[in-house]
Design a protein around this nucleic acid. Sequence first.
DNA 1: TAGCCATATAACATATTAGTTATATGGCTA
DNA 2: TAGCCATATAACTAATATGTTATATGGCTA
Lengths: 108, 108
Amino acid sequence: MTVAQPAVELDLELVLKALSSARRLQILEWLKDPASNFPVQEIGDPEIHGACNQYIGDKLGISQPAASRHLKVLTDASLIVATPRQGWIYYRRDEEVLDAAKRLINDI
Amino acid sequence: MTVAQPAVELDLELVLKALSSARRLQILEWLKDPASNFPVQEIGDPEIHGACNQYIGDKLGISQPAASRHLKVLTDASLIVATPRQGWIYYRRDEEVLDAAKRLINDI
DNA sequence: TAGCCATATAACATATTAGTTATATGGCTA
DNA sequence: TAGCCATATAACTAATATGTTATATGGCTA
C-alpha cells in the first residue's frame, strides 16, 4: 500500500532557483529548529510558526529588506509559509512541498 | 546491510546553481537516452559516451559557444563527464554524482 | 483612532548569468 | 606536418540577482 501523495503543483526550475543560494539554504536549515536558532519570542510558538524577518536578517548579517526578498523568493517557490501574528510575520518550512520538490529532483 | 556510498565531494550550492536552469535540466533529460534524442553518430556509442556539443546546441536552438558554456557549468558541478574521442567530445551524465547530489538535496 | 513598528516596496549600484559574433586552440587525418 | 574542424575562450550586450538606503504600507495597541 502506498501513502497518498498530495498533488502539489511545483515549478521545478523556480524551486531550484530558490534553493540555489547559500543564504536561502541557510534559512531553510535554521528553520528546521527555530527555537534553537533564533532568540526567544514572546509571541507564538517557534516550532509551529517559525521565525520572523528581523531575526533572520540579523542572523544572516544582511539588511531587513534583503532578508525580506530572500523570504519572498522562498515563499514564491512555496517552500516556506508565512503566518502573520500580532504584527509580526513568522516563516516556517512547508515540509509537504519540500518533500514534493525532493521527489521531483530525484527524477532528474 | 547498507550499500557503500562513494565519498563524492560536492558543493551543494554549485550543484543547485547548475541545476537551476531549464536549459541544463533539458540537457540532463536528453542525456538519459542519447541514442533516442540525438542524431546517429558515426563514432562512439551514444549510450556510453553521450552526445557532443554541436548536437546539444543545435537541439537547444542556441549557439555553439552558449551550449559549450552550459556544458561547462554542468561539468564544473561534476554532474556530467566529458569523453574526447576522435576530435569530438562526448558528454554523458555521471549517475554516481547525480545520486550523491540527490542525497544531499534530500537533507535540505 | 492615532501612532508605532514590522514588513514590503522603490530606487539605485554592482555582480553574475546568458546570449551573441569573432577568434583562438588543439587533436585528427590526409 | 599542414590544414580542417569541433570546442573553448574573448569581448560585448542585455537581463537577472543581490545588496544598500529611503520610504510606503498596514495591522496592533494604547
